[in-house]
Each structure stands twice: as C-alpha cells, then as structure tokens.
Amino acid sequence: MDEDEHSEADDYRLAEQGHHRRVGRPHSYDEGTIVDAERIAAQLRSDNPPLGARGRRLDRHAPFHIGLMASAGVAVTYGVVRLLGTASSVLILVAAAMFFALGLEPAVSGLVNRKVPRGAAVSLVIAAVFGVLAAMIVAAIPPLVQESRQFIEQAPHLLQEAQNHSSAIGRLNERFHIQQRITGMVDSLGTSTVLRAGQTVFGALSDVGIVAVLTIYFLADMPRIRATTYRFVPNSRRPRAILLGDEVMAKIGDYVFGNILTSLIAGAATFAWCFFLHVPYALLLGAFVAIIDLFPYGSTVGGFVVALAALTVSVPVSVATVGFYIVFRLAEDYLLTPRIIGRAVRVPGGVTVVAVLIGAALLGVVGALVAIPVAAALQLLVSELLFPTLDDA
C-alpha cells in the first residue's frame, strides 16, 4: 500500500467517526465531498461542546449574499408564498412521509450496523411495520363482523321496543322522538352526502397510500438524501451542520420509537383491563387505544371510548374504567413519557403542550403528531446557535 492509499484509508476511518451511527448507514465513498466534511466533523466532536464549536460568521458583504438579498423582492416572496399555499396539501403529505422515514431510520441504520445490507434492512423494517398493521386489522375484523351481525339480529327487536310505550326504550322514544329524528336524519342525508362521504374516505385512503409509498422511497434513499441536503450548506459550515442535523434526525427517530413503545403499552394495558373485567371486544379496544395513543393525548380519547363500551357491562365498571384511565394518563405523563421519550427529546412539559396546540392549529393531526420533535429540534438549534450568539453580543 502506497502513502496516498494509506492516507485515504486513514481519512475514511476518521470520517467514519464523524458519521452518525444511527443515521444514513452505510457510510461509503459515494458521498463525495461529504466524506471530507465528516472527517473534520470527527475532529470537532468533543465532550465540550459535544456538537462542535460555532463557525465564523457569514460575510454579509459577500457578492452572493448581496445579490441574494437584492433579488428577494416583494414579488418573488409573494409568489413563493402563493406557490407553497397552492401545494400545501401535497407538501404536508411529503413532510409526513419524511417524518415517518426519519422515525424508522434508526432501526434501519441499527440493522446496517449489524452488517445487514441497507436494502435488506429497509425491507425488514417495512415488513415488520406492515406486519403489525395487518395483524391489528385481522384481529379487528372478526369482532366487527360479529358486532354487525348481532346488531342486524337485534334490530327488529329494538324497533319493536321503540314502538312499545310500556318499555324503557319506548318511553324514551315517545318523549324525545328518537325514531323520528333518526328517520329524518337519514332522509336528509341523501345521495350527495353519501357520495361526499365516499369521496372523503377514498381521499383519506389515497393519502395514506401516498405517505406509505413515499416513506419507503425516502427510507431506502436516506443516505443520498442526507448527503444531498448537506451539500446545500457552505463547505466552511458543513461539518457543524452535519453534527447538528444528524442529532436532530436522531431525536426524531427516538421520539417515534418512544411514541410507538408507549402506545403499545397503552394498548396492552387496555386489553388487560377489558379482558379481566369482561368488557366486550378487549382486543379491538386495545388495538384502537394503541393506534390513537400515537397522537398527543390520544389515550384520553381512547379511554372515553373504552368507558362507553364498559357501560354494556355495568355503570360501576364504566366508572372504574374512567378512574383507570385517569391514573394511566398520569403514569404516562409523569413516568412513561419522561423515561422513554423525555430522555431523547428533552422538551419541557409546558413547551410540549404549547407545541401540540400550535401544531394542531396549523396542520391538524399531522401538526399535532410532529409538534414535539419539531420543538425538540428548535430547542437544540436555539441552544446551539442563538443563545451563544446572544451571550457573546
């Protein structure tokens, strides 16, 4: 081995130290000049500061900076805003897919670190995710079919009870005109409403399919996406950007993994509670709570649904179910979340609530879902970039 080959191998090993072990694996020479930046990033990494010292300020008198500021007029800015507004629905789907891809990236890179090819690692992770979803759907179908069959069989009896003025249902129907209200509601819906509902369901399923496909593509091509993104950063600031960017992506992955883990715990606790108290459809309710708990404060909504289902057993069981979810909510907020998610994102509780409210107001369900990792990323950037600048001012 000559001196140049030896130097190149040493540079690559040093660059490997600057490459985040849970993001964009495997590391290769195909990343081009990013390898050089990661070699410098490995030299910047230390215990204090762990993400490298701040780089020098941008030259505000540089020709590129002056030209960029001069060209960014009101018309251009207005056009960009209008363009983003027009494509907002598509951009939300793309952002959601990238969020899920970043969430699954630590699992893929973990397999790559164990000598699994990236293509096989992506296939294994995607197969595991879709396998869990398919298992939940398969578990939910039999209870739904059974419940629908029971309702169809009991419908004539319920109709007779509603027309019997001596029964409790009949007295309620006579007092509140329930049958007339339901009939009028069905008549008022009409064909157009049914068509709109069908279009809404079809659109939602299409959006889910688009997000799933984009997530797979983003996850498979994450090393190239990562390298290309860092190429937009000036070379003098690229090592620092790599350290900060990889840390942000790792936090998103930790949040998604922790969120899934706490949701599985919520689903398992729901199943156990319903099973031992003989609440019907324990498996279906557990799966429902596990899915809805993926969203902030979803277990509260899930607990309300389970409490309604517990009314079919008895009122005391329903009241006990409400108490169970109050205790579980406190345990999730002050025990599970701090231990599982809090160590990764390190976002204060007040900031979490505000972030979820703002995210939900801006982007609805997607905004509420990504609010906490976005807040964690902003908190990291503020502490690493803004506060040191203000302290030195």
Rank of each mutant, 00 (worst) to 15 (best):
D2W: 01
D4K: 15
R21D: 10
Y29P: 11
D30M: 11
T33A: 12
R39I: 00
R39E: 02
S46E: 09
P50V: 03
A53L: 12
L58W: 09
H61W: 07
I66P: 01
S71V: 10
G79K: 07
I92H: 09
A97T: 01
V108I: 02
V112G: 10
N113V: 03
N113D: 11
V116M: 09
P117K: 01
P117Q: 00
I126W: 06
V132D: 10
L133K: 09
A135C: 02
M136A: 08
V138F: 05
A139V: 12
I141M: 04
L144Y: 00
L144M: 12
E147N: 01
E147I: 00
R149F: 06
I152L: 11
L158H: 11
N164K: 06
I169S: 10
G170R: 03
R171M: 12
E174N: 14
F176Y: 10
F176W: 13
I178G: 07
Q179I: 13
Q179S: 14
G184T: 11
G184F: 07
L189H: 10
T193K: 12
L195I: 05
G198L: 14
G198P: 07
Q199A: 15
S206L: 15
D207S: 14
V208W: 15
G209D: 10
T215M: 14
L219N: 03
D221V: 12
M222E: 13
P223A: 04
P223W: 09
I225N: 05
A227L: 01
T229V: 05
R231Y: 13
R231F: 13
F232R: 07
N235K: 13
R238V: 01
P239W: 06
I242Q: 06
L243M: 05
M249R: 08
A250E: 08
K251G: 14
N259I: 02
T262C: 08
S263Y: 07
S263M: 00
T270M: 06
F271S: 03
F271D: 03
V279T: 02
L284Q: 05
L284A: 13
D293L: 11
P296Y: 02
G302R: 02
V306F: 04
L308Y: 09
A309I: 09
A310D: 00
T312G: 07
V313R: 05
V317D: 04
S318Y: 03
V319N: 00
V319W: 02
A320M: 11
V322A: 13
V322K: 07
I326R: 03
F328D: 10
Y334V: 05
T337W: 11
P338N: 00
V345A: 10
A355Q: 03
V356S: 09
A361I: 06
L362S: 15
G364T: 08
V366Q: 12
L369E: 03
V374H: 05
A377L: 00
L378Q: 02
L386E: 05
P388T: 02
A393E: 15
